[in-house]
Simulated scan of single mutants.
Amino acid sequence: MAKNGGRGRIRVFFAEVEGDDETIQEGLQAINVAANKIFQSTPTKIVKVLPASATPIDEDELLEELEDEDEALAPPNVAMNSKPKKSSYKPPIMSIVKDLNLRPEGELSFRDFYAQKKPNTQEQAVTVAVYYLRRVLELDKITPEHVFTCFKDVGRKTPKNMPQTVRDTAKNKGWVDTSERGNIKITNHGENMVDHDLPASNGKTDS
């Protein structure tokens, strides 16, 4: 290397190596060591050794080729930077039980019973409905759709997921029993709440 007036010059010599594979490999290693000493301060670049008869490859083409190889090695059915899918669960669609008579002859209608008890919370309304269906109408099987029909009869806003609301009432309050699949039962605790705590004097009961 020679310097002249603040400018530099560098001359790179390429060596030609002949011999068997072992000799060529040793020669390439020696050239690599020498080149690293000269260009140790330069940014690292991708180098691909090609046979002497091969056509020189453009660097951009080489990068694209390496990227294609990386994609080929990626696990199948796995998208890069893919976002987790949102849950596709939708609450069941409730239907009115058409043969459910909520105005039985000789008995208090559900609408009048509901007006007497004045339930405030969804849990209270669920319990009042189950109580009426079990103790007044004496139904053997009560489903979430029966409770849904009761809500519709009195014009109460129905929850988005009626089965889950019934389960929450059983879990959080213990007023109903959902242990038997497809059949809701009133518990002793729930009967006491409807018989003695409703309507609540303060407008709400959590007992």
Score class of each variant (00 low, 15 high):
E138G: 03
D168S: 09
E145N: 14
R11S: 13
V12H: 05
A35N: 15
D21H: 09
E105M: 07
S53R: 13
K45Q: 11
R11D: 08
K37A: 15
F151L: 01
N101G: 00
A35R: 14
R135P: 00
L108F: 07
L28I: 13
A52P: 02
Q122T: 15
Y132C: 13
K98E: 09
H146I: 12
T121R: 03
V78L: 10
G190Q: 00
K83V: 11
I10Q: 11
N120G: 11
T55Y: 06
M80S: 08
P51A: 09
N161D: 15
S109C: 12
G27P: 03
L63P: 02
A200V: 02
K85Q: 15
K141S: 12
E18Q: 15
E26G: 04
K90Q: 10
E59C: 08
E59M: 08
D112H: 15
R9V: 15
D197R: 12
H189P: 02
T42I: 03
T23Q: 07
H146V: 06
V78E: 13
L198W: 00
K173R: 14
A2P: 13
I24M: 14
S95A: 12
F148V: 14
F13K: 09
T127E: 01
V147G: 02
S82F: 02
D20G: 15
N161W: 04
G190F: 01
A170F: 10
I93G: 06
M193W: 00
L108C: 11
P92S: 12
A54T: 11
I57V: 14
R135D: 01
I31T: 04
A35V: 04
P104A: 11
A74F: 06
D168W: 03
G6Q: 14
A34V: 14
E65W: 04
E138H: 10
F39I: 14
E64K: 13
N188T: 14
Q29P: 03
T55Q: 11
V12F: 04
P76V: 12
F13H: 10
P92E: 09
E105A: 15
D140R: 10
P159L: 05
T42A: 11
G27H: 04
P75I: 10
F14Q: 08
T55F: 08
A34N: 10
M193F: 07
I96S: 01
N188F: 13
D99G: 03
P75A: 15
T169E: 04
K90F: 03
N188W: 07
Q124T: 12
V128M: 05
D195H: 05
V49S: 09
N183E: 02
E59S: 07
N36H: 12
S201M: 13
K3V: 13
A52Q: 10
V97Q: 06
